[in-house]
């Protein structure tokens, strides 16, 4: 089935060669047990960029993030982060290089209260946000420090999931569908947060279904289909690519 959509990568000429990239993925393949999910992903992210992976459900976006994080059953190909080859590195060591992951299901721990959830990820680099800065970004969290993590609302849980990786000093964040299932006002708040992180020089790899949201924060887009990148363009080319995008995403 992967063979049906192989026209794409040539159209990536618009994207500059990744000489200065922070993250470079080449021919990444990944498996969940027996099923072959990624069939040769090629893309890169430069320092300070917000790059969004768009694609339908099951295209392989989440699997891509998990492969970079090293938490997928089996992966092959090349993953270079900050001049380290991390394609065979264990996830705890990848995290220590300054990669932070916010999973789609948010991963808030039920047996930990909000403060414990927040303090759980260890500092991997100096320069993470202080608790004061985090409470300034997400005032709700400060009120609920003693609550059980999973007693928070969906929006608060998402904020907690983002907040706890900002403490660690990691400068490269992977956010998997941070707006999924949230109210518009919360989505807006998360959008502001991402914009602010970008201003502060964070590099962000975002997975989104909601490209209207992605359009408010992303510098570039890649389209994922059947475990491959089939297209890519910059935010400035978004309008020109709107028709194609609708076809890709089936919206």
């Amino acid at each position: 089935m992967a063979e049906t959509m192989t026209a794409g990568p040539a159209s990536m000429a618009a994207v500059p060669a990744p000489g200065d990239a922070l993250l470079t993925i080449e021919n990444l393949q990944a498996w969940y047990g027996e099923s072959h999910i990624l069939h040769g992903m090629d893309f890169h992210v430069r320092p300070g960029e917000v790059v969004t992976l768009l694609g339908r459900n099951g295209a392989g976006k989440t699997t891509t993030l998990k492969s970079i994080m090293g938490i997928i059953g089996k992966r092959t190909g090349s993953i270079r982060f900050d001049n380290h080859d991390i394609s065979r590195t264990s996830s705890d060591k990848i995290a220590r290089l300054g990669v932070a992951f916010c999973p789609e299901e948010r991963g808030i721990f039920a047996s930990l209260d909000v403060r414990e959830n927040l303090m759980l990820p260890p500092q991997v680099r100096p320069g993470g946000l202080s608790l004061e800065q985090i409470f300034e970004l997400f005032p709700n969290l400060k009120e609920r420090l003693r609550s059980q993590g999973t007693k928070l609302s969906g929006g608060e849980q998402q904020m907690l999931a983002i907040a706890r990786i900002l403490r660690t000093g990691a400068r490269f964040l992977m956010l998997d569908e941070p707006t999924e299932g949230l109210a518009p006002v919360i989505i807006q708040q998360i959008g502001h947060t991402i914009a602010r992180l970008k201003n502060e020089g964070f590099t962000i790899l975002l997975v989104e279904q909601n490209f209207r949201f992605a359009a408010t924060v992303a510098d570039r887009y890649y389209i994922v289909e059947h475990g491959k990148i089939i297209d890519g363009f910059a935010n400035s080319e978004l309008e020109a690519n709107m028709d194609k995008l609708h076809t890709y995403l089936g919206v």
Binding site: M69, G70, I71, S90, S91, D92, K93, I94, A95, R96, A100, F101, P103, G107, F109, A110, S111, L112, E116, N117, M119, L120, P121, P122, V124, I165, T168
Partner: peptide
């Protein structure tokens, strides 16, 4: 304790705790 929080979290979801940089 902090150590215990790591332990409880790893009991729930070892994969994610390891992805935070903790040697599970």
């Amino acid at each position: 304790t902090r150590l215990g929080a790591n332990l409880r979290a790893a009991t729930e979801n070892p994969t994610l705790v390891r992805a935070f940089g903790i040697n599970v």
